[in-house]
């Protein structure tokens, strides 16, 4: 396992596209998470001027709410990570190095395992990034920090890790299927923004929750901020076991499909 991961690291360490996209992800997401508080408060002040009831300032950065706020917001940017994963797998096809890897002495399962490990490491790194950022901003902005407060809702951090890994496994599957990066990314966007939404629209109520990307998005619901309460919304503040089961099943299915493709396909 360590050896496979080592090989993967060697492949990406000199790959500029990988680092550019990863840097972009870090900067965009970091910037937004650090700036979002100021932005929303500006907005609240504007809303507050004409509001019939007084609108209080809210803090997104207070424990334990910060975990849901951050993981929910960060979820919107996972598409950049999906592009990284697609490039990692399609490069092997466009350079034909997958063939060379196998001929040299990797088994096809080793190859799949190395890509899954890399996908997991990317998911884990992105999760740790959110955790560290959340921890720092939380400690700074929470008036009275207690140990319990910090860890009370860290379930969202684990849900976020699952969300990323499932989402990126789907990206890996599309990359493996189409072999070409442009095509895979196009297919991904098409499915994500058009096809699945259309299917969801056509399906009876609640059935849409069993669609893969929708189920993944459902893991972490919109946080209940004061703003949301103002509009009368009430979202879930927990991670629903049903969503976890659906997402885990889809992830297992994606991995199994990749296994079949790699086993059957000539390289």
């Amino acid at each position: 396992m360590i050896r496979l991961l080592n090989i993967e690291f060697k492949k990406v360490i000199y790959n500029k596209t990988f680092w550019v996209l990863l840097g972009l992800y870090g900067i965009i997401l970091g910037g937004i998470l650090i700036g979002v508080q100021t932005f929303i408060n500006e907005l609240m002040v504007d809303v507050g001027k004409d509001a019939p009831i007084p609108v209080s300032k809210i803090s997104l950065y207070e424990f334990p709410g910060i975990w849901q706020n951050f993981t929910f917001l960060a979820g919107n940017f996972k598409i950049i990570l999906a592009m990284i994963v697609i490039i990692i797998i399609t490069n092997e096809y466009s350079y034909k190095t997958i063939r060379q890897n196998i001929v040299t002495g990797m088994s096809r399962m080793d190859f799949l395992m190395s890509k899954l490990l890399m996908t997991f490491v990317i998911s884990l790194a992105a999760t740790i990034f959110i955790f560290i950022l959340g921890f720092i901003l939380g400690v700074i902005n929470t008036p009275e920090v207690t140990f319990l407060m910090i860890f009370e809702k860290t379930v969202f951090i684990f849900a976020y890790l699952l969300e990323l890994f499932a989402f990126l496994s789907f990206a890996l599957l599309l990359g493996l299927l189409s072999k070409r990066s442009g095509f895979a990314i196009g297919l991904f966007f098409l499915y994500y923004y058009v096809i699945e939404r259309f299917i969801n629209y056509k399906l009876p109520d609640d059935w849409g929750d069993f669609l893969p990307l929708r189920a993944i998005a459902n893991l972490i619901d919109t946080p209940n901020t004061a703003l949301m309460k103002l509009f009368g919304y009430n979202f879930r503040e927990v991670v629903a076991p049903q969503d976890v089961i659906v997402v885990l099943s889809f992830t297992a299915l994606f991995i199994y499909l990749m296994f079949l493709i790699l086993k059957k396909r000539d390289l």
Binding site: N15, K16, K96, T97, Q100, V103
Partner: peptide, 12 residues
């Protein structure tokens, strides 16, 4: 083994 054309990571 070499199968057909030489295959390596071009950026390395």
């Amino acid at each position: 083994a070499i199968l057909e054309s030489p295959v390596f990571y071009p950026y390395m």
